[in-house]
Design a protein around this nucleic acid. Structure first.
Lengths: 352, 352
DNA sequence: CTGAAAGCGCTTACAG
DNA sequence: CTGAAAGCGCTTACAG
């Protein structure tokens, strides 16, 4: 079971197979110039000795590291949730399939100050970078606008800078959800927000919500909007604040499912029934959404696929097969019980 | 703001500074043989041109990649939680400080079948590996027992194989929590488990719990133990099952906080008050534990520190400064409200 | 104290 | 179709 101690190099293979280094290399890179006979002989030797090419040497010769970095904001509990897991999973699967390794980077203060996000490219540590969970405080990303360094924002984008991105259609998702509530007859709707000043996509959800209300001449007082933490606890507190100011609300739109679940908890604590007393709609469709009682009506984001897509596009950029990537991914309203539209779930299968 | 297009190499620095390649290299590696005068001259040139050494070339010459891998189980929603975030954060911070890069790997079926966990070392992609979230189904880790490849289990260990690890003192934590319940007079205690057959540390918590009951001649029927998913929903369902079979329970010990919070939700749904009707104890001390109503009594694990420690030890192994690492990290019972010992929190500050 | 040279393990024109 | 040679950008004995 123990791995062999002796490491083989391309030289060993060449000797054993009775060919030159070049030939071995060409075989490994599937060069069609090599005759089938020698090809087989070399492959057989590689197989027999269990030879693994040194990736460092290869990268050095290629002047490409075949590695991408996933950049995350400073990790805090607020962030370590399903969200990252799903996206990273998608990124990793696709990167692996395309022969890339995935490096992890965290946007600490020092990372930014020492401009490590540039050093990573300069030192040939990575060929490209994906940024998940960026927000307006990450000013440094401006340096990637128009830069030669492959860089893609994952499930976010910038209005200020011309950056590459792959993002959910947050606006349309929010539009669907808001319209759904309005169509059900709601006119006094509270909004539970998070990161409204920092996160572009949070802003989008809110703007879209607001727009739908306007279109239907529904008023929205400032106090009907509460900006809190993007967590269950944040949703809980926001709900309390919301209901204290507006006891007459008939529905609540939460910016994400976590907050919606917190809202649900608060409603329970207050003895209010959902959806009978207050309807509720979330965003994301995390697994817990379908397990909740009542099951949560929400907007499903294809996080895994977003990760895959972003990775794919980044690699296109690296290979110069694309120069700009700005893709918007469709989302889907999942009507369950918490909005009161139905007692049964329309879509019950929890997906990815 | 835009980075320069021209990349400098060590050769450029040598020319500009009027010295040889060797000298530049020696300066960069802080070799004391170089005179202060030339040293300064070289450093100044490096600074002026913004030179960044090519990490690949360096690694190739050193025959070390200066990179470690963090291996995660196939990412699913059950896993993407605070747990990983905290640990990875600790690993990353320490790795960075010690000049290492962190690569991400996922133990997919294919990763295991193609023995990529060995290839990573053979191809010089990584110098060492940290495995978070391993369980008994990850049979391949046996190959690292007594192997030359630096490898450390993070917050887990193996009874079967002689592997390096850094792990919380789960047994002692569970012992404290169980004793606490017993001392409060509880004799009919339910246990909500998860991964009892797969995860060694889950087993440890349970064993310790069981032992405390035995020591106090408290009976524990098999139906007082429910093994469910390690999620809030899992805890909720387990609680339902538990109370259906044992309406007379006065306390519940949950294997982790998520399940404990699910239990809390179920108790609410059933109209049972915690701690008055049923006391509750969890494990981990995730942020939500202190926010719950009632605040959750639980055992705090220093996840960030565990990540740091594991990383540190791994690098010791890589440098041959250690040959074996088996460290147990202390944990601490945090008495809050859910156990009924007090109406006020003894420790209220939520900690990282 | 400094430099020329060999080496790390690959790839890739260039010859033949 | 195959090989000798130069190159990727560093480090490190070895000489002086």
């Amino acid at each position: 079971m123990k791995p062999s101690v002796k490491r083989y190099t391309i030289k060993d293979i060449a000797e054993q197979a009775g060919v030159s280094l070049s030939t071995v290399s060409l075989v490994m890179n599937n060069n069609p110039r090599i005759s089938e006979a020698t090809r087989q002989r070399v492959l057989e030797t590689i197989e027999r000795l269990g030879y693994q090419p040194n990736r460092l040497a290869r990268s050095l010769a290629w002047r490409r590291s075949q590695t991408i970095a996933v950049l995350l904001p400073q990790l805090r509990h607020t962030f370590a949730d399903v969200y990252f897991g799903e996206i990273i999973s998608g990124i990793h699967d696709r990167a692996t399939k395309l022969g890339y390794k995935v490096m992890l980077e965290v946007a600490r203060a020092e990372f930014i100050e020492s401009r490590e996000y540039i050093q990573l490219y300069e030192q040939k540590v990575v060929d490209g970078m994906l940024f998940i969970g960026s927000n307006a405080r990450h000013e440094f990303i401006r340096e990637f606008a128009g830069s030669e360094y492959p860089f893609v924002l994952v499930n976010n984008y910038s209005r200020e800078f011309d950056l590459n991105y792959v993002v959910s259609n947050y606006r349309y998702g929010a539009w669907q959800a808001a319209n759904h509530l309005v169509r059900l007859g709601h006119r006094r709707i509270g909004f539970i927000a998070g990161g409204l000043n920092d996160i572009q996509t949070s802003r989008d959800i809110f703007d879209s919500f607001q727009q739908v209300l306007q279109e239907h001449n529904i008023t929205l007082e400032p106090s009907q909007v509460v900006d809190g933490w993007l967590t269950e606890e944040g949703g809980r507190q926001a709900t309390e604040q919301l209901l204290r100011a507006h006891g007459d609300l008939t529905a609540i739109f939460a910016l994400n499912d976590k907050m919606a679940l917190g809202a649900l908890r608060k409603l329970n604590e207050l003895g209010l029934r959902c959806p009978d007393d207050i309807a509720l709609v979330g965003f994301d469709d995390i697994p817990a959404a379908s397990f909740a009682t009542p099951a949560l009506t929400t907007v499903r984001q294809p996080l895994y696929d977003i990760g895959k897509l972003a990775c794919e596009h980044l690699i296109e950029l690296i290979h110069g097969r694309a120069s700009r990537v700005q893709e918007v991914v469709p989302v889907q309203l999942i009507v369950r019980e918490s909005c009161g539209a139905t007692k049964k779930s329309v879509v019950t299968t929890p997906v990815g």
